[in-house]
Structures are given as structure tokens and as C-alpha cells.
Nucleic acid binder design. Structure first.
Lengths: 392, 392
DNA sequence: ATTAGTTTCTTGACGGCGGAAAATAATTAC
DNA sequence: GTAATTATTTTCCGCCGTCAAGAAACTAAT
């Protein structure tokens, strides 16, 4: 499979990346603003922007007559923004039974989505399907291939972005799989691999609620309960590939048995399947999926009680995160949040009770999440790689 | 109070700091080794070392005949080490009822120790006493004042090193105290303030078990249970001044009531006073201090059981830290560790049970801690400030 | 309309600093 | 002694960011 020449990142060095990301994450900004935000001199900003503008990554915003209201004296600023369509990226999240793929532009706006069921979890099959999916996605518009920046792939489990290895993925049953090499060979594209939750954290860092925060955490509520951490200017990876593992935080030592062997883990109480099991058990009703469980809870107090208990468990987890890291914000997201109105109050109450001192000051931000957002996270990893290769 | 000119840090820029800290923390190293470790070129290392050597901070090691055993061909390397006596630092830990002060050399080796009771916790009184203590300490040798690098002060609570403010200290009952300014005025010395646990973490980072680790955590077991975190090349401070607050991690929802209002916090089970209370209650014996409690536990199974329960709680906390951050190492320290043999097994068992996957691979390092070590931590902060001002 | 005042952006000179390569140094292996 | 090998130093080069001095593009007076 031959592929056209991919766009080379035009980023000169650290300063170029810094300026680029500042504009990317900070919306349209004048050069003077960028200078202030980055701490660079105005001259340095001008010089750093030159090649980026020449290559078409940055463009000056057309002045729309009466710009920002309070215009002061002096030469008016010329805001610069990212030319989002200059370059496209693909992101694929690999789950145990499905591939989710997206194409995004430079600002991580999703341009195309495709899902593809996985019949087999064998490495070769996954690679083949993945290559086919990406090929389909990039086939949707000529622009995608013509100016392609990179492919990001995210997998749950212990993953090493540097070596491109999936060290261990429980869902797929993989160990020591050189996934990047395989996917790169099959697609001919530049590939970057990352853990799924960390990929989501990267997306949040640059394109979501993490923008401007010195530290934040992303807590995902779904089948499992996960957590991505951003501290000291970087996403936390963990020395052994594990980090942000809050799903097995013990909440109730007499609680339900968790698959990890202990009792009363957050995940065993507030994970989607745990909720379903509890509701079935408590009410005797047959609930097949979360949607019907939510439906039921709207009328059945016993079912509602299950959600409250789950909310309590989540609140405990959030408080633990806040106490531990003291992040500026915690973003709570995940498919499980469809039932947010059922959780909400209990989450906040428990959080407030257990957050210690000033740790309780951290913002709790709710952000429902679609499955596609996981793939978008993978694309965000590719974008980050493209713009700031040294960072990750 | 006039003071002689303090040593100016001879550190040129980031590279100078990097080279200096590499030698400081890595023992004697040849220039070639430093180049490898830092990723700099050999030329850059030579250049960076020049002014440091000229100023007497680095010295070449005398070759002691038969150096390292396996000497290979080629020009022999000239190891360089830090001249520890080139410069002295003071560190003071402020507690509710006592000041603990030390003088250390450049390698944080303690050269002098003094304690000083605090009759009053009023800000002015503490400042006065602190100045007197430091003056006494520095009076112990002419060298101290002659080549003094800086004073570090550590306080428990919410502290902002940048502004030099104690934002809130529960033990002292202080709020918004500009402590650095006051101490600097009273002593005429360059002063740096830091939270007590973070100061200890800095000491560990440069002069203890944190050396060479990309990430680690320090868990202190004493009256309270605290935790300092080092991730992504820096100590974690928390957006709101709170970080590493694991003392109130819930372990047993039916456990003893904690002063924070919840039940079964780690601290309410494994904190020193909690242990004493439990032992008194369980055995009916009067135990005044931890030492007698330990004594008792060696013979009394019921008392021993209290330590086991405490060990379990600590193990849970350690597992939470490991799961959360995935640090390379966890250093467990504190006065409470005098009873280490009583805790040990239970700590490790519980940790192994609750550490998730690869998070359990992290090293657990036991390091008993004296009260003086807290002051040494404060001195380490001053040393870090002296050598790498930009870092913190 | 002209002039002064302001703020933004650009340009060019300058300097610090790290890397590459060559020179120098100090030993071991023959 | 000569060659090989490794460490350190020196010299030179180029990148990159700051500083200072314009140039540009407006507003506000006069």
C-alpha cells in the first residue's frame, strides 16, 4: 500500500511548539497575547509564527468590522488562529469487540466516524481490520490523505507509547505486542499509540476542560471506572504503565465482590454492569442495559437507591482524587453519565463530605461522553505528536 | 542585624543546575558520565563545570591508587564530586510547640541540631524564637556564617513557596501569614518556605531514596498520615495547596470516628494517637506513649492486634497511592515506624492484595525518620533553591 | 487636516549556549 | 616504542531568543 507523502510537522523546536499550542488551545490570539501567555518576547513570537503561517498552519483572522467591543487606542491587533483544515488526523480506539475510528481536523473536530465490529481479537486480525477501517475513513475525502498528519491508536491496558508496544491488555488478552510497528506496516502511516484513558486526557488537555488548567483529572464512568491525571505540565503515565487506577478503591468493605478479588471496590458498586446487577437483584426486574435501568429508576425507589449508592461510591473516588492530587479541576465523563441526574446530588454530597480542606475547592465538571470521543482522544494523541513531538 | 555577604549561587542557567544536581545526587561522576546521564555533549559538561569548579563547589576526586576494580583501556576518567563543606544551609521545621533546627552542608549532611520549645504560637513570638535559634545554630562554627547558602523553613499546612505565605496552618492556627518576609527581616538571611511533607519529599528526591527515580511517593506515618508526591520531574503541590492528603482515605466505614467527621479514615486507625487510644481501650492498660505501646504489644496479643489493624490501614493507603500514581517507589517513613516489625507483615500483605496489576511492582522502602529529618528537609529546600532556583 | 500618542508587529544586531569536530591527554595492549 | 582507546578541552559554528530601533495602523486632540 503506497501512501502519499504525509505532512511534515513544520515545528522548528520547543518554542515553535509552544507558540503553536498556545494558539491552538487559546483560540484566536494576537501575537502580543501569545507573547504574554508564553513569556516570550514579541520578537520571538513573530519569528516563530513565520514558518507556521507560511506553511498554512496559522492564518490571520479577518477583521469583522467591529471586533471586540472595547477597542482601545493604538495599532489594532491581528489575531491569529489555527487553520484547522490544513491537516487531518485519524484516531482509532480498539476495544475487545469493536474498532471505533474517526477523522478529525487540526482542532480535533470530528469530520468522519466509522465503527467496525471485531470478530476476532487476534493481533493480525485486529491489525487488518484497523488498516481497512482507516483506509475507509481516509477515503471519505481526498483532503484527508492529501494532508494527513498522523494516526493515533488507543488501547485499554498497559501501553508504552515510546516503544509502541502493548505490554498487556486484559480486554484483548495481548501481551508484548509491537502494535505500532504492525499498524504502521499495514497502513503506511505515522502511528502513535497510547492508553485509552490517557488519550482521553490528552484530548481534554488541549481541546476540552483541561485547557488552561495547571493540573486536572479526568474520571471516566462506564463499564470500568478510570482516571487520567495531568500534573506538572504532563499526563501521568506511571512507572509501570499503571496510573489513575481508582476503580478498585475500596468504598465498602462489606460491599459486593469485585472481580479483582476484594470487596466493595468503586467499580464493583458504580460500574455499569454492577449497577445492572444490583438493580436486577434488588427489584427482581430484568434490566438488559443501562438505558432501561435508568428508565426503571425514574419510577422505582429501590432502583433509584442503587444509583444513589453508586453516586456515593463515585463521590468517594472523586474525593480521593482531589485529596491526593489537589487538581484544579476534575472532569467527570463517561457513558455512565447518561444517568447523571440520578447520581448528581449524591456525588456532590459525598464529595463535599470527604474532600479535605481546600481540596474541596476543585471544580467538578460534568462532561457526557460518547464512544466516538474515545477515538477522538486517540486522534488528539496524534495531533499532539504532530505539533509537540518532544512533549510526549 | 547585619549579616556577612551570603554565597551567591554560581549557577549560570538550567544546564548549570542540571550538571550540578547530577553530580550532587549521583555521587562522584566523571564528566563523561555526567554527559551520558544528562544527555548533554561532553563539551557542554566541561563548560558548565568550569565556573562551578572555579567557585569551589565541585572538586576533582583524588585518585586513590587502585580505583574501581575493572579499569579498562584509555585515558582514565577524573571523577568530580561536590565539595560539601563549600557552603552551609539551615533548616527549621516549625511545629505547634517546638522549633527543630539544623545546619547542613551542601549534601544535606546534618552538622548541627538544636531544638527550641515554643511557649506561644503567636506569629511574632515564633519569628523571634526562630531567629534566635538560627543565630545559635550559625554561631556554632564560623564557617556557617562565612559561607551560608540559605535558610529553609517548613510548616505543616497550606503554604505557598512563591509568595512566601503560610495560607493556613491548622496546628499553629495561622492564616495568611507572610512568614518568609518576617523571617527574612528578622534574620537577614535568604529564606525559602515550604510545606513540611513536601520539604521531606525534596530531601528524599535529592539525597534519599528518590534519587534516580522518575516518580516516587513519600508516606509519613506519625501523628498524622501524610504523603508527598514526586511526578514528572517535580514535587506535586496541588492547585489549592493540598496534595498527598491520604490520611483521610476511608478504610473501614464502621471504624473509629475521625476528627474530620468521617469514620474509619487511615489516620483514625493508624495515626499514633489512634493506636494509643485503641490499645488503651482494648487492653485496659494505660499507655502514655508509642514506646510503651510497642513494649506492650510485644507480649500482649490484643495490643498486637491493634498494630496489625493499623498495618492493614497503612497497606490500604499505600495501595491507593500505587494504584493512583504508579510511582516507581514508595518510601514509608515517620516516627511511627519505630514499631515497624509489628506493622511490616500486615502492610505488605494488604498492599499486595490491593495493588492493582503492575502497580504492585513498585518498591516499598522503609526509612525510619527522626524529628531532625524534618528540619533537614527544610534545609534541602534551601539547597534546592540555591542550586536550581528555576525548578521550584 | 495635521500632529501627537499608543499599541502592535517587524527587523536587525548581539550574545549565550550547546553541538561537532579536532586537538590534547593519559593509559593500556602489543 | 607504537597503536589503540577513552577522557577532556578547545575552537568554531549555528540556532535561537532578547534588546533596541523602526514601521505600521490606529485614536484623540488641536
Amino acid at each position: 500500500m503506497r501512501s502519499p507523502g504525509h505532512s511534515r510537522p513544520p515545528v522548528a523546536g520547543a518554542t515553535g511548539s509552544l507558540v503553536f499550542t498556545t494558539v491552538l488551545t487559546g483560540g484566536p490570539l494576537s501575537r502580543a497575547d501569545v507573547a504574554v501567555r508564553t513569556g516570550l518576547s514579541a520578537a520571538a513570537v513573530t519569528k516563530a509564527m513565520k514558518p507556521l503561517a507560511d506553511a498554512g498552519y496559522l492564518v490571520e483572522v479577518e477583521e469583522t468590522a467591529e471586533d471586540q467591543g472595547a477597542r482601545r487606542v493604538g495599532r489594532p491587533a491581528t489575531p491569529v488562529r489555527v487553520h484547522a483544515e490544513r491537516c487531518y488526523f485519524a484516531g482509532v480506539k480498539v476495544t475487545g469487540d469493536e474498532l471505533i475510528g474517526v477523522v478529525t481536523d487540526l482542532q480535533a473536530t470530528v469530520c468522519a466516524v466509522r465503527h467496525r465490529p471485531l470478530r476476532s481479537g487476534a493481533v493480525e486480525d485486529v491489525v487488518t481490520e484497523l488498516a481497512a477501517l482507516v483506509s475507509e475513513l481516509l477515503g471519505e475525502s481526498d483532503s484527508y490523505r492529501a494532508s494527513f498528519g498522523g494516526l493515533g491508536v488507543s488501547v485499554g491496558g498497559d501501553v508504552d507509547p515510546e516503544s509502541g508496544m502493548v505490554r498487556y491488555s486484559p480486554f484483548l488478552g495481548w501481551r508484548q505486542v509491537p502494535f505500532v510497528a504492525l499498524v504502521a506496516a499495514a497502513t503506511g502511516l505515522p502511528v502513535r499509540l497510547e492508553n485509552d484513558v490517557r488519550a482521553l486526557t490528552v484530548a481534554e488537555q488541549w481541546f476540552g476542560s483541561g485547557v488552561g488548567a495547571g493540573s486536572f483529572a479526568v474520571v471516566t464512568v462506564g463499564t470500568g471506572i478510570g482516571c487520567g491525571l495531568f500534573v506538572n505540565e504532563r499526563v501521568v503515565s506511571g512507572a509501570h504503565g499503571v496510573a489513575g487506577e481508582i476503580g478498585h478503591l475500596p468504598v465498602d468493605k462489606d460491599g459486593p465482590l469485585c472481580h479483582c478479588g476484594n470487596r466493595g471496590c468503586v467499580e464493583a458498586i458504580a460500574g455499569n454492569s454492577a449497577i445492572l446487577a444490583q438493580i436486577s437483584e434488588t427489584t427482581g426486574a430484568e434490566v438488559a442495559d443501562l438505558a432501561s435501568a435508568i428508565e426503571l429508576a425514574r419510577n422505582d425507589p429501590a432502583a433509584r437507591r442503587v444509583f444513589a449508592v453508586a453516586g456515593h461510591a463515585i463521590g468517594m473516588a472523586l474525593a480521593a482524587v482531589a485529596n491526593f492530587l489537589g487538581p484544579e479541576r476534575i472532569v467527570i465523563s463517561g457513558e455512565g453519565l447518561a444517568a447523571y441526574d440520578l447520581f448528581s446530588e449524591q456525588i456532590r454530597t459525598t464529595f463535599a463530605e470527604h474532600a479535605f480542606g481546600a481540596a474541596g475547592d476543585c471544580d467538578l465538571i460534568i462532561r457526557p461522553l460518547s464512544f466516538d470521543d474515545w477515538a477522538r482522544g486517540a486522534a488528539a494523541v496524534a495531533i499532539q505528536r504532530f505539533i509537540a513531538p518532544h512533549t510526549s
